[in-house]
């Protein structure tokens, strides 16, 4: 039981990081971006690529499986993932957004997601990869609960990122513009703000968080080209559960989905695990159609 709780929180925090970016871009650009999960895969593999190219394997820090090189590789991966998101938005979504209807953009995101996955498969191959083959010793926190130091790191980092993002959204001009943009784009422009800049920053932040989520996933589980595909449903479930556009909601949604998945294997065969987020999603939407905490786009109601 305790172990399922710990596992659920771990998976949940990775889902949360991915879902934050998804909820921000969905809230602001108002379309379901199925390629978002692929940014997670892309970020994870870019970090792997950077590690492979630089070939540095300075020893791990303390009890963790990784060292400075992976941290630097993650930063580079975050930049490369943001670049991918900006390029895709510029080449695919932006022209479609202004000329065609909503569904075209959604379907184009399917296409983008396939393309990204194929590119990764082509470069890195389909077998499972790891950032490091260091063995870690699990720490026993209390009887019946053993966790890897990496897992604790993941939790800590997620917490720090969520708090930092909260302050960013509440206290900075850019954060304020992002929240405003989710409610009423024209009024943001009338206020003298160039919404294209705000949209770009939204992609950058969402993609960087996706890259971090990807690296954390690769570190705590393993790297496979279908990571994104497997996280797709949990991400959407988390974002919609929390209310589209609601960052805090996405975090809680991510935790709920993660916990539900890990507890479900205690009761149902593991093969059905993927259906769990979907069932929760349906159940919550039945009772609260705009998500647990409501969306950020109050004007659209």
């Amino acid at each position: 039981m305790l172990q399922a709780l710990a596992d659920g929180i771990l998976t949940g925090s990775i889902i949360a990081l991915g879902a934050i970016g998804l909820t921000l871009t969905m809230g602001i650009l108002r379309f379901a971006n199925f390629a978002h999960a692929e940014l997670i895969t892309w970020g994870a593999y870019m970090a792997l690529g950077v590690l492979a190219i630089t070939g540095v394997f300075a020893g791990p820090i303390g009890p963790f499986s990784f060292g400075l090189p992976l941290i630097l590789a993650t930063l580079v991966a975050a930049v490369l993932t943001a670049a991918l998101a900006l390029v895709v938005d510029y080449l695919v979504f932006r022209p479609l957004r202004s000329h065609t209807n909503h569904m075209t953009v959604v379907f184009s995101s399917f296409g983008v997601s396939l393309l990204v996955r194929m590119v990764i498969l082509l470069i890195f191959g389909g077998s499972a990869e790891y950032y490091s083959d260091e063995l870690q010793i699990a720490v026993r926190l209390m009887p019946g609960l053993r966790v890897m130091p990496d897992h604790l790191f993941t939790l800590g980092l997620t917490l720090v990122i969520v708090i930092a993002l909260h302050f960013f959204l509440q206290r900075t001009r850019l954060g304020l513009s992002m929240r405003a943009l989710a409610e009423n784009p024209d009024l943001v422009r009338i206020n003298g703000i160039d919404t294209r800049t705000v949209v770009r920053w939204t992609w950058i932040i969402g993609a960087a968080l996706a890259a971090v989520a990807g690296v954390l996933y690769g570190m705590t589980v393993q790297l496979r080209p279908e990571i994104g595909f497997q996280l797709l449903l949990p991400l959407f479930a988390a974002a919609i559960l929390g209310g589209v556009g609601n960052v805090f909601g996405a975090v809680v949604g991510g935790l709920i989905v993660g916990l539900a998945e890990s507890f479900s294997v205690l009761f149902i065969p593991a093969g059905y695990k993927m259906a769990v987020p979907f069932i929760i999603l349906l159940a919550v939407l039945y009772v609260r159609p705009s998500g647990l905490f409501g969306g950020m786009r109050g004007g659209a109601k």
Partner: peptide
Amino acid sequence: PQTANVFTTL
């Protein structure tokens, strides 16, 4: 504007 001239969520 005539309508939606403030951000209600802010």
